[in-house]
Design a protein around this nucleic acid. Structure first.
Lengths: 143, 143
DNA sequence: TACCGATAATTCGGTGTACGAACTCACGGC
DNA sequence: GCCGTGAGTTCGTACACCGAATTATCGGTA
């Protein structure tokens, strides 16, 4: 199996894990992704678009729906009254952490057949790729 | 960076590559994915749902739109008159090959900073994960 | 101070994605 | 010849995206 094929299939597995777990929580994969991003800090709408690779107008609705569900809140930006800071609510923070942890486990489970050394090698190589393509900070432990 | 984080970020990169390339061709990522799957052989609607992890009713519309664009065709299954075989048209086959090749290059480009040996190691590890989680056959060279 | 281009975000209209439930129709065993 | 099962479609609903147009503020400049 060539590298590109292996990468595509792994992306498919990760997407599926993400989707299934989101579904169990009653939200869409995109909403789950946004919750994970907000775990580290609040973001402005424009920033979210940049991080997610979406048009600003797409972010509006995404945040709307999470806000309607009480997981997220729009706060006025103290330094710029045009801007808005999107932050997790108390409930949203709890759910986001739980969702993150479960998703993390599910994804690690995909690599359960590898030895510790292999997992370490894999993590290092994938991290190189991520770094060299300056991916958005999309999923991370908070420690 | 932990393994799960690295995997999620790489999936994000692959998704983005897929999306951007699809967009250049004027179709959605899902449509591009379907075209790549059909490169190897025709599939029934139910099979497609299983391969893609979608409900049957979702596949109907996906195929409808590609058929409207003349990239795909529904053929009657000679052995079962309830069933349908979805196949690439001549034009669809050309476009699918071109799309596949470009996407492949784009994804390999993500790993451009790795040495040949590293790429080989990475491919082997990812292939193990794919095999052990019996992923659908979603992206592949035809040789 | 008054102006004006740039920027943050929303609104709007349109298309695509996805689901489950209900339906049609052919298959195939009995 | 009947009937349960399986293949696909239809329908209604909700979400995900986008680009273009809009509103309101920011900040530099005359």
């Amino acid at each position: 199996m060539g590298l590109s094929t292996a990468m595509v299939r792994n992306a498919f597995l990760v997407n599926a894990a993400y989707s299934e777990n989101s579904r169990e929580y009653g939200f869409s994969p995109q909403q789950g992704q946004l919750l994970c991003i907000l775990r580290s800090q609040p973001y402005g709408m424009g920033e979210l678009g940049a991080v997610l690779g979406l048009a600003k107008s797409s972010v509006t609705g995404l945040v709307d729906r999470l806000e309607r569900g009480g997981l997220v809140r729009r706060e006025p930006d103290p330094a710029d009254s045009r801007a808005v800071r999107v932050a997790l609510t108390a409930r949203g923070g709890k759910i986001a952490d739980q969702f993150y942890t479960e998703t993390r486990e599910r994804i690690l489970g995909l690599a359960a057949g590898l030895t510790d050394a292999e997992r370490e090698t894999l993590a290092a190589l994938l991290a190189r790729i991520a770094d060299e393509n300056n991916v958005s900070v999309i999923f991370m432990d908070l420690d």
